[in-house]
Design a protein around this nucleic acid. Structure first.
Lengths: 148, 148
DNA sequence: ACTAAATAGATTGATATCAATAGAAATGAG
DNA sequence: CTCATTTCTATTGATATCAATCTATTTAGT
C-alpha cells in the first residue's frame, strides 16, 4: 500500500488549473512586477504607491483602518512605513486623543512624489485595463472583492 | 502654486476604488491568510502547497519552468525551496544532462504531506468557490490569466 | 477610583519577493 | 577547437508578509 500516499498526476493538473489562490498569487506577482517596473523612475513600489495614496486624505488616519483597507496585517503596515519614513515621505505621530494610536500623514515631499507617480499609474493601469474584455475590469474587481 | 503638487481627495478615492493592482494584492493577501490558516495543521503554507503540487509530476522538472509556472522570480524559487529541503519534503539534484541545472522532486515524505493537505485544499477551495456567483470562478481565472 | 478586559501598535523570527550581481556550464560563430 | 555569448542557478541586500508575543493605554464593570 505504499502507493496510497501518491496523488495522481491528473489531480495535480486539476489543482494547478483550478486553484483560485494560486491564480490570484500569480496575478499578484505579475502585476506587482509590472507596476514596480513602471513606478521605479518615481522611486516607489506598487505597494508604497497604494499605501501613500491611501494616506492622501483630509484627516490623518490611524494605522488600524489603513491596514484593514489594504487587507494587510498591522505588523506588515508597521514595517512598510519604515522606508517611507526614512525617505521623509510619511510621518507617524502619536494620536493626542488616544496615546496608544498613531496618525499617518504624507509630508509635502511625499505628496510631490505621489503626484509624480500618478501619471505613471494612469498609463500603466490603462494598459492592463485594455487587456481585459469590455467591462472586464469592473467584473474582476467585484469578483476579487467577494474573496476579501 | 504650492498646491500644484497636491492630489485631490477625489482622485485618491478613484485610485483606491479602481486600481486593479491594489485589488489583486488585497485579494492575494486575504486568500493567502485563508489558505495558510487552513493548511497550518498540515504544516505548509499556500505557497508551499502550490509549489509542491507543481512538483508532483512523472518527471522531475528543472527550476526555470517551475518558476515560470508560478509566475515568480527564479531567485524566489531558490529561496522557497530551502525550508522544504530542510523538512525533507523536496530534493534538489544536479541535472546530469545539463550540469548548470537542477531537478526538483518530492520525497515520499513530501508526497505524504501533500496528500494530507489535499482534502484541506478541497474543502477550502469549495468554500471560496461558493462565494462567487455561478460560473464566477472560471471567469475570474480567465480574467486573472489575461493579466499574467 | 480600582481592577479586569479590550484595544492599538511595536518587536522578533521566519518565510516570501525581487533587483543586482556573480559563477558555472552549455552553445554558437568563426 | 576557441572564445564570446547565452543560459541556469546561487548569493546578497532590501523590502514584504504574517504569527506569536509584548507593552502601553483605554474602556468597562464594580
Amino acid at each position: 500500500m505504499s502507493n496510497s500516499i501518491e496523488i495522481p498526476f491528473s489531480t495535480t493538473l486539476m489543482v494547478r488549473d483550478t486553484c483560485l489562490c494560486l491564480h490570484v498569487q500569480r496575478a499578484a506577482r505579475a502585476l506587482a512586477r509590472l507596476f514596480d517596473d513602471a513606478l521605479r523612475p518615481a522611486g516607489l513600489t506598487n505597494g508604497q504607491f497604494s499605501l501613500m495614496m491611501s494616506l492622501n486624505r483630509p484627516e490623518p488616519p490611524p494605522m488600524g483602518p489603513v491596514a484593514a483597507l489594504l487587507a494587510m496585517d498591522q505588523t506588515t503596515l508597521t514595517a512598510a512605513l519604515k522606508p517611507l519614513q526614512r525617505k521623509g515621505w510619511v510621518t507617524v505621530m502619536e494620536n493626542p486623543r488616544d496615546r496608544r494610536g498613531r496618525l499617518l500623514s504624507l509630508t509635502p515631499e511625499g505628496k510631490a512624489a505621489l503626484a509624480r507617480a500618478l501619471p505613471i499609474w494612469e498609463s500603466t493601469h490603462a494598459m492592463i485595463d485594455g487587456k481585459l474584455p469590455e467591462g472586464g475590469a469592473a467584473r474582476l474587481r467585484q469578483d476579487l472583492q467577494a474573496l476579501s
